[in-house]
Design a protein around this nucleic acid. Structure first.
Length: 206
DNA sequence: CAGCTGATGGGCT
DNA sequence: GCCCATCAGCTGG
């Protein structure tokens, strides 16, 4: 147990959209093989389970991969996309409610040298932890970590200075055009003016 | 700068 | 056999 980590119960409350907003400004940390890295979360997306066409659990889809989403909130859901990118999500909601929050971008805080090695880069620039695939790679998160609790010694989250509502922008989610009308839902939350936000300028205007 | 596209593999129909 | 909750590297203005 990490004493300062946000407890699992926090992620089990009903309103995933509120959690997604409140996570902006929080610190996500990993420690694998003694290599500590951490970031300040600046971009999240909420996926609201069975009623959300963009969600892997839409319409009650319950497969080997998505079964993790149906467990109690407070654990990791990590999956592989496009054959090469590992995307890190936080499972939220009660047991049986397959909600999740995708962590899309952050500002690097600790372990910059290790992030450079994992990202195969020579210098730190904004792309080091911008975008969900890049963020997971910088922090060493892989699909093998799916299901692990988020208040222990491998991956954990601590509360940060909360972001004023005026500085939070809600936009449609990225890359979910297949979701029909649900693609337009404003379930992506970003910290205004952070240079680490993913997506184009138009995608970032509330 | 915007816009396109190849890479690459598990999950699902 | 097709579809991705993506990224880096290239092209052409």
């Amino acid at each position: 147990m990490k004493p300062n980590a946000i407890p699992a119960q926090y992620f089990q409350q009903e309103d995933t959209l509120t959690i997604a907003k409140q996570l902006l400004g929080a610190t996500l940390s990993t420690n694998f093989n003694g290599q500590l890295t951490s970031i300040r979360i600046v971009e999240t997306e909420a996926y609201l389970g069975v009623t959300d066409r963009a969600s892997h659990a839409w319409n009650g889809r319950h497969t080997n991969r998505t079964s993790i989403m149906y467990l109690e909130g407070g654990i990791a859901y990590v999956y592989l996309i496009y054959g090469m990118h590992h995307l890190f999500n936080i499972v939220t909601g009660a047991f049986g409610t397959p909600h999740a929050i995708l962590i899309r971008a952050g500002e690097p805080l600790e372990g910059l040298d290790q992030m450079l090695i994992r990202r195969n880069k020579k210098r730190v620039d904004y792309s080091i932890t911008k975008g969900p695939g890049s963020l997971a790679q910088a922090m060493g998160i892989k699909t093998s970590h799916t299901g692990i609790p988020l208040n222990q010694n491998a991956i954990w989250i601590t509360a940060g200075k909360s972001i004023p509502a005026a500085e939070i922008i809600a936009t449609p989610r990225i890359g979910v055009d297949y979701a029909g009308e649900d693609a337009d839902l404003p379930y992506r939350f970003i910290v205004a003016n952070s240079p680490y936000i993913s997506g184009s300028a138009t995608q970032n205007c509330g």
